[in-house]
Structures are given as structure tokens and as C-alpha cells.
């Protein structure tokens, strides 16, 4: 058993086969207390499948999931007690009111006083509509009720599968702030999947990138962004400059853009060195601009091409 109490969710070598297909394999990562952990991948990458294993809806073919030190497979009750989740859409009983839905779930948890229901309803700002049938709720309201339901049992870990699906920009921003606040003020860890790179960038502390069923990288969002930078060089003559940059071992990609512009992908702290190398080759450098890469760039680099998008039927 892991002794590190700061780790709320620990996943080791998780894999799932359905029939002969490896849907996901060799998934490992840890989520620390109070951390917002992004799970980023294109459609069909295996995010939902992984999440279903994290909450015990499907059994992994290999590997283990530990929540607050309790193995999910061996000690389901004690592990799942610490989890609140929404898997895919916030599906609730449409023929019950918002409050009745929450009451249903409260009865399935140990010792939830009715004040707790009012508290979470207030937290997600659903108080004026809580006694209406869920049938009459908008998608955004259902999403919020889903979150209220997930928070009901004071979880240490919140697992959300693409929670921004179908929300408008204002709703997305609101949700983002809400989740950041939860993590900061209540120390709740949040595991959040998304296929929108920008979103993860804004919301998460760390991110695991998954593609075709396996994790291609796990890193702090900050580190990931600083690893490599696109640097724009104004060079003369440009073609010679491009070739000379290409000789450097740490330049991973170089490309001629406009007559005098060369884009190179390289670590930020090597810019001075590269500049000296160019000067040594009689290349005139009239401008250097380093871009902050977006996760999109990183994703392209890691997965070697555009995000692999599976066509869903």
C-alpha cells in the first residue's frame, strides 16, 4: 500500500480489452491532493473508458486503481466513498425534481443531513429551480445539478468527463472558476477529461495526454509549455540560415516560412547559442521572436501529426 497520503488517486498500468481490442493500455499516473489533473485526448482516445474504470463501472483487464490508498477492486466501498463523479452526460431522473434527485443520492451515502443538500444546491446556484422537474432543466442546469450530486458526499476526488460539453462560453468560464475554487478552497482533487486543449491549459495544474489508448506524456502544464518553443528568426540569407539551424542537435524542426523568415522548434534556453552558431556562419540575424506554444503545438509534436480523430458512427 502506498504510504504517500498526498496522493488521492493512483493509477498503475491500467488496461482494458474488449473482445480482442485493446481499448486502453499501460495507463499510469497519480493525482495529488488539491490538484486539478487534466486528461487530454481526441475523440475515441479512451478517456471515457479510463474514467469508467476509475469509478468501478467496468473492470480493468489489468492494473490497479487506488483512491485514498484503498484499492478500487479489493475495497470498492472505501475507495468509492471519496469519489464524486459525472461520467459522460449528467444523466439524472428526469421525472423527479432536482431536490428529489439529490435526496435519492443522499440516501445512498452514509449520514448526509438535509442541510448538506441545501448547501450544495446553493454552491451550484440552483436554488430557485431546485423543486422543478429535471425534465424542464436546460443542459447547463443539468450539468450543475450533476456537479451538486457529485459534491454531495464531500468527496476528496471529483471525476468529471468532459464537463464543458454543450456549455456556452460564459458557462465554461463559470465552470472553470468554480472548479479552481473548489480545488483551492476545499482542497478537492479534480480529475477532468477534455478534448479541448485550450481548456486544459487554462484549468489544470498537470495533464496527461492520451492518444489511441495510451498516455503519451504526463507533465505539469507549465513545464509542458516551457519545454520547447517555436522561435521565429529573421535571417538573411534565409535558406542558408535554415540549413545552418537544422544542423543543431537541439533544433527538432525547422521550416522556411516567408522569404526571410525561418521557424525553428527548439528549447528556449538555447536561443543565444543558436544565435552564435548563425553568426559563425555569416548569417545576418535581424530579429528573434519566441512564441509560447499552445498545448495544440505540443500535442501535434507528441503524437506526430494532427490529433488522431476516430470517426464515430
Amino acid at each position: 500500500m502506498k504510504t504517500n497520503h498526498n496522493i488521492v488517486l493512483s493509477v498503475e498500468d491500467l488496461g482494458k480489452k474488449i473482445g480482442k481490442r485493446d481499448i486502453v493500455h499501460h495507463i499510469s499516473f497519480d493525482v495529488k491532493e488539491g490538484e486539478i489533473f487534466g486528461f487530454l485526448g481526441p475523440n475515441g482516445a479512451g478517456k471515457t473508458t479510463t474514467i469508467r474504470m476509475l469509478v468501478g463501472l467496468i473492470k480493468p483487464t489489468s492494473g490497479t486503481v487506488r483512491i485514498c490508498g484503498h484499492s478500487l477492486s479489493a475495497d470498492f466501498m472505501n475507495a468509492i466513498r471519496h469519489v464524486g463523479c459525472i461520467v459522460e452526460n449528467p444523466e439524472l431522473y428526469l421525472y423527479l425534481s432536482g431536490r428529489e434527485n439529490l435526496e435519492q443520492f443522499a440516501r445512498m451515502l452514509p449520514d448526509i443531513p438535509s442541510e448538506r443538500i441545501d448547501e450544495v444546491v446553493d454552491l451550484v446556484e440552483l436554488t430557485p429551480r431546485i423543486d422543478d422537474l429535471v425534465k424542464t432543466y436546460s443542459l447547463g442546469m443539468r450539468q450543475r445539478l450533476g456537479i451538486a450530486q457529485a459534491l454531495l458526499g464531500n468527496p476528496k476526488l471529483l471525476i468529471l468527463d468532459e464537463p464543458t460539453n454543450g456549455l456556452d462560453p460564459a458557462g465554461i468560464r463559470e465552470l472553470r472558476n468554480f472548479i479552481r475554487r473548489l480545488a483551492k478552497e476545499k482542497g478537492i482533487s479534480v480529475f477532468i477529461s477534455s478534448h479541448i486543449l485550450h481548456e486544459v491549459q487554462l484549468m489544470c495544474d498537470r495533464v496527461a495526454i492520451i492518444n489511441q489508448g495510451t498516455i503519451v506524456q504526463t507533465a505539469a502544464v507549465q513545464d509542458l509549455m516551457q519545454q520547447e518553443t517555436l522561435v521565429e528568426w529573421d535571417l538573411k540569407p534565409a535558406t542558408d540560415g535554415r540549413d545552418r539551424l537544422g544542423q543543431l542537435p537541439y533544433v527538432s524542426r525547422v521550416e522556411l516560412r516567408e522569404p526571410s523568415k525561418v521557424i525553428a522548434q527548439m528549447p528556449r534556453d538555447k536561443i543565444a547559442e543558436a544565435n552564435a552558431h548563425l553568426a559563425g556562419g555569416d548569417i545576418q540575424v535581424s530579429g528573434i521572436r519566441a512564441h509560447h506554444p499552445t498545448l495544440e503545438d505540443i500535442f501535434l509534436e507528441l503524437t506526430g501529426g494532427p490529433a488522431h480523430d476516430e470517426t464515430h458512427l
Binding site: 469509478v55 468501478g56 463501472l57 470498492f76 466501498m77 472505501n78 468509492i80 466513498r81 469519489v83 463523479c85 461520467v87 459522460e88 452526460n89 444523466e91 439524472l92 431522473y93 428526469l94 443520492f105 445512498m108 451515502l109 452514509p110 450530486q149
Partner: peptide, 14 residues
Amino acid sequence: AGGTIKLLLTRPVA
């Protein structure tokens, strides 16, 4: 059909 099975089975109840 309603997807609510996911909510039922992710509670601390056997």
C-alpha cells in the same frame, strides 16, 4: 436507458 445506472453504481453501496 436513462444512463442513471452510472450514478447508482458509483455510490458506496454493493
